[in-house]
């Protein structure tokens, strides 16, 4: 197992290089001139523009630009944005915000998703089961943007139970954005849990557990839930990556100053250093959580072995 993990970690290096280059190339290919856009209506003197170009290597060919960027990276220099702020500083300021938002979303996903799935799976065909089916269908079919704006209006503006936007009220301000960010994943978790639990309940080993004279609680919790949650845990782990991606939209809707919004804004300004730095970081998290999932999978299911 240790060697397997080491090999997987080594493999992340080429993946990160590839990913960062792709993103770099995409920013490079964006139409328009970032420096001219930066200046807005009043054009900067040509000399200033040229100086800026030189500082950000904007006149070099793609490969040279990328090479200079990577050279900086290995020395721990993530570059600076056009206002001279180090990208690393932006990341370290905004990462905790996005981490909190994603964390809140994962907690919602786990608690609500699994609870709804388990209750529905245990009482299939019941009113609650149908309620879960309808609700989850709605959740996955309504675009997040719509869900976000509507809930923001209803709960924030009309009812006033949560802050409309921003993070000024601490953890409380993350509740609604976290829930919206979790919405689709939560629906999938509920569905997956329900199906998986129903499958497990029909399994031969559950019949055996009953034949052993175990009480219902032991049969359900020990011999059904654990087995049926294996695919759910796997899904949630792999889903952390897509939550990080979803944060880009949620943070924009709710005006949350996290990494997602940093990316959003930097793409508009064509600030390559920020976009590449942040997204490469997200890619790293994605790979990392996938590795965690694979390890967890082997822990939960003894039939899985990595050599």
């Amino acid at each position: 197992m240790g060697r397997y993990v080491a090999r997987r970690l080594l493999l992340t290096i080429p993946v990160l290089i590839g990913a960062s280059f792709l993103i770099f190339a995409m920013v490079y290919a964006l139409p328009g001139d970032p420096i001219r856009a930066l200046a807005g209506d009043r054009p900067l003197p040509a000399a200033v523009q040229a100086a800026l170009r030189a500082e950000y290597n904007l006149d070099d060919p793609l490969l040279v630009q990328y090479g200079k960027y990577v050279l900086g990276l290995v020395q721990g220099d993530f570059g600076t944005d056009f206002s001279g702020r180090p990208v690393l500083q932006t990341i370290s300021e905004r990462l905790p915000v996005t981490a909190t938002l994603t964390g809140v979303a994962i907690v919602f996903e786990i608690i609500i998703g699994i609870a709804a799935g388990v209750l529905a799976g245990l009482r299939r065909g019941s009113f609650f089961d149908n309620l879960v089916l309808v609700t989850t269908t709605l959740l996955v079919s309504i675009p997040v943007l719509v869900l976000g704006f509507v809930s923001q209006y209803v709960f924030g503006v009309r009812l006033g139970v949560v802050p409309v936007a921003g993070i000024s009220e601490g953890l409380y301000s993350y509740l609604l954005p976290g829930l919206i960010l979790a919405a689709i994943s939560l629906a999938y978790v509920a569905r997956l849990t329900r199906t998986s639990l129903a499958d497990s309940l029909r399994a031969d080993y559950v019949r055996t557990a009953r034949a052993k004279g175990l009480d219902r609680r032991t049969v359900v919790v020990r011999h059904t839930l654990r087995n049926s949650l294996i695919p759910v845990v796997t899904f949630i782990g792999a889903d952390i990556g897509s939550l990080l991606g979803g944060a880009i939209i949620t943070e924009s809707v709710f005006n949350i100053p996290g990494l997602g919004r940093a990316v959003f804004e930097s793409v508009q300004r064509q600030e390559g250093a920020v976009v590449v730095g942040v997204i490469t970081l997200l890619v790293f998290f994605f790979i990392f959580f996938n590795l965690v999932v694979d390890v967890l999978y082997a822990v939960l299911d003894p039939r899985i072995r990595y050599e």
């Binding site: 399994a203 055996t208 087995n227 294996i230 939960l300 299911d301 003894p302």
Partner: peptide, 8 residues
């Protein structure tokens, strides 16, 4: 199939 795969 009658034995639970996740317990020894």
């Amino acid at each position: 199939s009658a034995l639970n795969p996740v317990y020894s």
